[in-house]
Simulated assay, not measured.
Amino acid sequence: MKSSGRSQSLPVGVVLRRAPGVTRWAKWAWTVAGVLPGAGKADWRMLRSEGDVTEYHAFTGTVHLHATETEAYMVALNDTPPSLYVIMRREGTGDSPLSLVTVTASPYDAQDYADSGEEVVEKVPMPDGFAAWVEAFCDAHHVEHEFKKRRRDRSRVDLVEDGVGDARIVQTTDVYRSPRSARQGRLN
């Protein structure tokens, strides 16, 4: 575990499960089976195999906690069960088709990755010891901010009609009509 004032980080191993696909178009279905807090380096090391289902310690990432993001971590802790988010990218169809982008305890960051549609975002239950570490970090660094409603300014912007319509039209009846070209004017 690394700590520097207002941030901390911890390595986390990601366990991927490979099972037979349920359609004829997908030979394998890959899911995140769990995480291993404090894990060492991994490079698709097989952990267990039962029949066609195999689990791999595929990669090790680092979860970084920052004091400015404690609100997001508290949302993850209050989820049932508390959750981590593993973000991966598809890298082909071989024996290791996924690569790790990041592991985060922030559901807000996970939502940003999910919105792009480029990455695979998996929600994983947070181990109890890991949840205690995140909770202790939040207790030490969280600051409640009072909600301040933004007020509109009182200036009236509807009194001036600058830029309404086309300046080349001299009539006042229909300012939104497009101007006639010189050729159209001769034909009428």
Results as ranks from 00 to 15, higher is better:
residue 133 W to F: 11
residue 126 M to I: 08
residue 103 V to C: 08
residue 105 A to R: 09
residue 110 A to I: 08
residue 107 P to D: 07
residue 118 E to C: 09
residue 137 F to Q: 07
residue 133 W to I: 07
residue 130 F to H: 05
residue 135 E to F: 04
residue 99 S to I: 05
residue 123 K to Y: 02
residue 103 V to E: 12
residue 111 Q to K: 09
residue 134 V to S: 02
residue 124 V to D: 06
residue 102 T to I: 10
residue 101 V to E: 15
residue 111 Q to S: 06
residue 116 S to A: 10
residue 104 T to S: 15
residue 99 S to D: 13
residue 119 E to G: 09
residue 140 A to P: 03
residue 103 V to S: 10
residue 124 V to E: 07
residue 140 A to L: 02
residue 120 V to S: 03
residue 119 E to W: 15
residue 99 S to W: 14
residue 129 G to H: 11
residue 127 P to A: 04
residue 131 A to W: 00
residue 125 P to K: 04
residue 109 D to T: 15
residue 142 H to A: 01
residue 109 D to P: 05
residue 108 Y to R: 14
residue 109 D to E: 14
residue 109 D to M: 13
residue 142 H to V: 01
residue 100 L to G: 12
residue 136 A to I: 02
residue 110 A to K: 00
residue 133 W to S: 04
residue 104 T to M: 11
residue 140 A to V: 00
residue 131 A to F: 05
residue 126 M to V: 06
residue 140 A to E: 13
residue 117 G to P: 08
residue 134 V to G: 02
residue 99 S to M: 10
residue 104 T to V: 11
residue 138 C to I: 00
residue 108 Y to L: 10
residue 117 G to E: 09
residue 140 A to M: 02
residue 114 A to Q: 14
residue 121 V to A: 01
residue 115 D to Q: 13
residue 136 A to N: 10
residue 135 E to G: 08
residue 112 D to Q: 15
residue 126 M to Q: 01
residue 127 P to W: 12
residue 123 K to D: 01
